[in-house]
Every structure is written in C-alpha cells, then in structure tokens.
Design a protein around this nucleic acid. Sequence first.
DNA 1: TAGTGGTCTAGACCACCAT
DNA 2: TGGTGGTCTAGACCACTAC
Lengths: 236, 236
Amino acid sequence: MARQAKYEELRQELLAEMAGSAPHTPLPTEREISARHGVSRNTVRQALDALETSGSVYRVQGAGTFVAPPVVSKSLALTSFSEDMRERDLVPASRLLAAETVRAGRQIAERLGIAPDAEVVRVSRLRLADGSPMCLENVHLPADRVPGLAREDLSGSLYALLTERYGLQIRSAEQVVRAVDLDETESALLGVPVGVSGLRVQRVGLDRRDTPVEATTTLYRADRYDIRFTVRRSRP
Amino acid sequence: MARQAKYEELRQELLAEMAGSAPHTPLPTEREISARHGVSRNTVRQALDALETSGSVYRVQGAGTFVAPPVVSKSLALTSFSEDMRERDLVPASRLLAAETVRAGRQIAERLGIAPDAEVVRVSRLRLADGSPMCLENVHLPADRVPGLAREDLSGSLYALLTERYGLQIRSAEQVVRAVDLDETESALLGVPVGVSGLRVQRVGLDRRDTPVEATTTLYRADRYDIRFTVRRSRP
DNA sequence: TAGTGGTCTAGACCACCAT
DNA sequence: TGGTGGTCTAGACCACTAC
C-alpha cells in the first residue's frame, strides 16, 4: 500500500487551516510551520509549492506567504469529462453513438504515432450535463492495445475502463483548442441552431512514457462551455 | 545584480546536451549528473523538475529520466502578443484603434476588483501577424495606476511599458477561453466574413500580490489561431 | 537590521522497475 | 536483487522586504 507523502498530508492540513481566512492573510513562516508540524523546511516548501501551483497561496520573497484571493480559475489539469462536469456542479451522462474498429487514416495515425492502415477503435459519444447535450466526443485508440473494447460497457468513464481493464494510465495530454463553425449534423446532435460556433478540443493522451494512447476530438457547445485556467510568467 | 541560480544554469546545460538525442534516450542518473556537475542531487532535481514541467523530459520511477518525444505543445505560459507571435514564427505588429479614459462599468470593475464608477484607461488595438489581422485586443487598466498612459507610445509591447514606466509587473493571469460569433464590426476589422467564429480570451493580469492590474479581452480569428498546451494528471 | 522566502548541501531511507 | 527516481532531514548562506 502506497503511504501518503508527508508534504501531501501537510498540504491538506494547511488548506483546511486557511479555509476561513481572508485573502492576503499571512500564513505562518516556513520555519514556524516546520517546527509546529515536526517536519523539515524542505517538506514545508514542497507543500507550499503545490498550494502555489494550484493558486491557493502566493509568496513574496522577503515578506511571506499569503492566502490568495479567490480566483475564477485554478491551474489546468487533465480531467475526464465526468470529473470536469462535477467540478462545475453539473451531473454528467453519456449516450453512445458508435463503437467500432476502423482503419486509422492519415490524420489519426499521425496523432497516435502509428501506421495509417493500422486498426483503431473509435468510440463516439454524446455527452450530457444535467440531462442536456454539452459536447460530442470522438475517441480513437490503437486497436491492439484495447482488444474487445467495443464490446465493453461504454456508458461511464473511459479513463477508468482503460485503467482497470487494460492497465493503461493516461498521465498527460497535449491539447489544441480552436473555435469552429458547427455543421448540420453536429448542431442537431448538440441541440443548437445551425451555423453557431463551437469550441473544438483535440487531445492526444500519453502514458507515463509519453507514448500516445488515445486521440480525442471533442466539440463543445459554445453557449454552455468555456475553459478556465491560470498561467504564470515562466522565466524572467 | 541577481546571480543565475545553479539549477537554472544546469537546466540550460542539460537542454543543450539533449539537443541531438533521440526521443526516449535515457539521461544520466540524478546521482551521476550530481557528481559530474559538482552539485547536490536536490539541485539536479530542481533542474529536472523544470525540464519535466516544460515537457522536455519525462521520468519513470525506478527506471530513469528520458528525453521526451517532440510535442506539438509545451506547457502554457503567460506571454504577450508579441512573444506569442514570435514563438509561432510570425512577425507581430499593431494598429492603435483607441486610447482613452472612461468609467469602468460593472463588468470591468468586477474583473479588476474596483468600483464601477472608478476611472480606467482603455487601450484598443488591432494586432497583426505577418502584416494581416490576427486579433482585436481591448485592455482596461485602473487609471490611478497608470497616469498618462493614453499619451504614451502604444505601438509596441504594453507589458514592457507597464514595467519600465510604471513599475507594474504582471506575474500571472486568469484566463477564460470561449468560442463566439463575430459581429459585423469585429468581422470587418479582422477581415473575415460576417458570422464566422472567433476565439475569445478574457484575461485578468495579476501582480506578485495577486492583485488585478489589467483586464483584457482578445478576439482571435478562428482560422488563424489556436491554443496549444500540455496538461498533466494532478493527484491520483 | 531583523526576518522572510530562495537556493544549496550531504547525507538517508523508501517505493518501484528491470533483470 | 541492484539501481532508479521519490521523499525527507538538518543544517547553511543568500537576496529581498519591511521597518
């Protein structure tokens, strides 16, 4: 059994202690937290690093660490549709449109790093939030890595299925976001007027060896969906 | 003068050494890099952390650290329009549409955390890439923090001007991305047909104390612009 | 000038991977 | 099993902030 890391435990404790504090309230100094919780200062810094990355605190050298003001957006993380919807307080659901094995084709092959005539499993689903359409999702996976997938239960989380049934863990993803005009079929499925805008997210999911496992194109209704995130200046 | 940190120096050296290597080539072990460069292993890990975040290497516990395969997207960082275009090998330019002092109004006031009747400087610019329109940019700044801004030279980088002239450093930003239908005026300025889609990015720039400094809405041509980034699974 | 976060060291043990 | 990255310790000095 993998034990919880100390800095992770500390992170959660600090988050709980901060819960009632006003923005810009100073946290105890790193040395104080270190002494009070009986851990080294490096461990405290690991916990604070995580809290800073997630946008919960900010640090000013020479001054201290402070509770960050509430933000609209936390930093972007890789989430499944279900997780994404639950974070927005919406109830996720799914309607399977197609599940079949086909040849990859040039574009999918390039994204997955396989041969164009290799077989891929294509799973097409209409995803719902609070009972009404939110997006169209089209997933492609190399067929040899997911034998029998098309016959599995595809109503729930695909990521969970990949992990439990096939031992495939998606650890990161490359995404390309673009605005597009929806065509007639897409508009009809999403329940919006013809010709309005949609948000298209193309994703390539990678395993821990940075090898492509999944290529997904998702088409969101522009009137119900946006992407929120925090960015930081990297190197000055 | 601020000296360069050792881990930053090491990061650049490792990046240079990796330049010719094939994807998945193992790097030396952390202990080896440590010995060879005469730094502690923690410092090596700081350098590797940065390289992992930027998508240059990936690490597998128990196995090693490896050169990451080339990716379409690096992790998202806060960049100015000029920096963004240069990364895409395009030449940035600018046409000033308006620079004036106005009342904030409800929406801008909320984003900047100021009173609705407070004064803000509004700078509206058409931004060009390789000579043709790329986006419409509308920046709002609290007037009391940038006195005289409307009379400055606004043809170049606004971020540089804010830093040099007013000592304002934008360290992070919250962004909201959405697909929208362009109206007649917007289409005309961007040089696209009426009714096509645009990508709208709303940004609130924050200083090192997480205080809002700038609220910007940028409208990109969907046919010329997309957003690319890498996301990682956060906590399992 | 005192105190803060930022960087760095030289150890140590653990969890995990390949063999 | 031996070697890897992941975590952790107990120090130290530096750069910067606030007073």
